[in-house]
């Protein structure tokens, strides 16, 4: 399964970024092969508006099946849902710890956005 984790840096040992749309980068992790790829999200960080929406577009293009992050707002959630991408919120620690939390089943799949727009 291909997972995108929002991150403050570019490696598996970097801290998870609790923001989805304005995360510094996205780490694409393949749970079957262990392959990782870091994608810069400066477009989202600098977006005047719609950061979450454009982040959902990036994640969709990466072919991810699920997103692991801290929080997800309403428009980003709608876009991810439309793309058929599962959202797991409430993750913390490093990127690899967040992946372990997902594998262990300790993260709950979000059924709705957990914050309003522009929460941070």
């Amino acid at each position: 399964m291909k997972v995108v984790v929002t991150a403050t840096g570019e490696g598996l040992d970097s801290e998870l970024d609790p923001r989805f749309g304005r995360a510094s980068s996205f780490i694409l992790f393949d749970t079957e092969t262990g392959d990782t790829k870091a994608v810069d999200n400066s477009g989202g960080v600098q977006a005047a508006q719609g950061a979450g929406v454009q982040a959902a577009e990036v994640v969709s293009r990466l072919g991810a099946e699920c997103v692991v992050t801290g929080h997800c707002g309403p428009k980003a959630f709608r876009a991810l849902q439309a793309a058929g991408i599962e959202v797991y919120t409430g993750a913390s620690g490093t990127v690899s710890e967040a992946v372990e939390q997902l594998k262990a089943g300790t993260l709950e799949r979000a059924a709705a956005p957990d914050v309003g727009g522009h929460w941070a």
Partner: peptide, 11 residues
Amino acid sequence: CQYNAIVTLRS
């Protein structure tokens, strides 16, 4: 779109 008002998803 400069305003992210339209995005292209897999769908």
